[in-house]
Design a binder for these strands. Structure first.
Lengths: 215, 215
DNA sequence: ATTGAATCGAGAAATTTTTACCGATAAAAA
DNA sequence: TTTTTATCGGTAAAAATTTCTCGATTCAAT
C-alpha cells in the first residue's frame, strides 16, 4: 500500500520548499511580483536548476525571461504542503519548549492549529499559555476522540515521550511531531516526524570543528 | 581551501549519529554493554548496513557476533561530533524560544555552554533565565571579543535575524545556529546552521496528507 | 575441538539526488 | 521588425547515498 496517488518528492527537496516560501513572502513584502529560479538560488546559495526542479513538484509553470509569479508560487507551495487545510493539534508537555511552540503564531500559516495542551504537573494544569489551556494528561484520550484531533506534538522530556505517544495513538491521533530525543515505537500506520536539536547541532559542531582547522 | 584534514561524512549520516547516541545512552542506562548494528537498526527502523557505515565514520571497530562496546561507541560519537570540547555561546533573542533553549540542560552534553543572552527589549534585559543573564544587545560586541565567544544562537523574530547575524560576525563570532526562518547572508568563512520548524513540519504535513489518502 | 549462528567490514550494485546541458520561448533592446 | 538576453523545462550525466552480497571472525553450543 504505497503512495501512488500523491506525488512523491525527495525529502531534501521537500525541506527546501518552506525555505523558498519564507523568502518569497519576504520578497513579496518588498514589492517583488515575479521571481526567477536564479534569483531564489542566489538569495539562498542554492543551484538554480535545483530550485527549478523543486518548484516543478508544485506543478506551477514559470515563464522564460521573467520566472514565476510570486503570488502563484507562494500559493502553490502552501497547497503542496497542505498548509491551506487546518489540522487541529494537541500538545503534550507544557514546559518552556512547549510554551515556545504554543507562542509561535506562525504555525497558523503552516496549517497547524493548537486547541489544547496537556501536562501531568499541577504547576502547569489550569494555566493558560498564549490562549491555550493546559489540561491534565488523562483528559487527552476523551478529548481527542470527541474533538477528532489527529495531530499530536510531543514536547516532554525523553523518558515520557513513548508513553505519551502510546496514549496519543490509542486516542486516535495519527500524526506525531516529536521534539523529544527518542525514536518512538509506533505502528506502521502512524506518521512520525522527529525534530531534534541535537541533529542540527551535530551539523554545526562538525562544520565548526572543520572550520577551525582552516583558519 | 577545502577540508582535507577532517574526515568528510555525508550530512544525512551526520544527522543520524546523535540519534544513535541518544539510543545508546538509554540502552546503557538499561544495563546493555554491547550492541550490534542490527539491534540499533531494529530500534530505529534503519538498515543495519547503514548503521554500520555510519558508525565506521567514528573510527570505532566492532566485533563479529557481538557488535560494539556501548561505552566506546558513545564516546566515539561524542568525540566525532566534538561534543567533548566546550564552546561558549551567546544567545540573542530572549523570548520564549530563547528561554526554552537556555533551559535545555542537555546542551551541556553537546558541548555547548551558554554564557550570556541578549535582547533589545527592556522587559527582558536584566532578567535571568536559568542562570543566564539577559544583557542589552549593544553589549554583545565588546563581550564577545573580551570573552572570545565564537558561537552565536539566534532566536529572534525573522526580521531581526540578519541584523543580529551582522553584529555577531563583526564581533568575532564564526558559527551561527539560526532558529529564525531566514537564510542569512554571511561571508564564506562563517559557519551557519539553520534549524527551522517549518521544514520539519512540511515533512509531517506531507506524510499526513499522503497517509490520509490511504485509510 | 568442531559446528553453527550472528555479526562485522569491504567492495559492488542500485537507488536517489544533484548538476549540467540545451532547445524553445518570452520580454526587452536595437 | 529583428536581435539580444534571460529563463524555463526536459533530458542526460554526474555525484552522493543507500542497500546488497559475501568472506572472515568471534562467541556459544554441541
Amino acid at each position: 500500500m504505497k503512495n501512488e496517488d500523491i506525488k512523491m518528492i525527495p525529502e531534501p527537496a521537500l525541506r527546501r520548499l518552506p525555505q523558498y516560501w519564507h523568502l518569497l513572502r519576504r520578497l513579496r513584502d518588498e514589492g517583488v511580483s515575479e521571481v526567477s529560479s536564479s534569483r531564489i538560488a542566489q538569495e539562498m546559495k542554492f543551484d538554480p536548476t535545483q530550485v527549478r526542479k523543486d518548484i516543478q513538484y508544485t506543478d506551477i509553470v514559470g515563464k522564460p525571461k521573467t520566472g514565476y509569479d510570486i503570488n502563484q508560487l507562494i500559493k502553490a507551495i502552501e497547497s503542496f504542503l497542505n498548509w491551506e487545510n487546518f489540522d487541529d493539534a494537541f500538545l503534550v508537555g507544557a514546559g518552556v519548549l512547549g510554551q515556545a511552540i504554543l507562542s509561535y503564531k506562525a504555525f497558523k500559516n503552516y496549517g497547524l492549529n493548537f486547541v489544547a495542551a496537556f501536562d501531568i504537573s499541577d504547576d502547569k494544569i489550569g494555566q493558560k499559555f498564549f490562549d491555550i489551556e493546559v489540561l491534565p494528561l488523562d483528559k487527552l484520550q476523551n478529548l481527542a476522540k470527541r474533538m477528532h484531533v489527529h495531530v499530536g506534538v510531543i514536547t516532554t522530556p525523553a523518558q515520557a515521550a513513548q508513553e505519551v505517544a502510546d496514549i496519543m495513538i490509542s486516542s486516535g491521533i495519527i500524526a506525531i511531531w516529536n521534539f523529544a530525543p527518542v525514536s518512538l515505537k509506533v505502528p506502521d500506520d502512524i506518521v512520525v516526524e522527529n525534530i531534534q536539536f541535537s541533529q542540527s547541532l551535530a551539523v554545526l559542531s562538525r562544520k565548526l570543528a572543520s572550520h577551525k582547522l582552516h583558519i
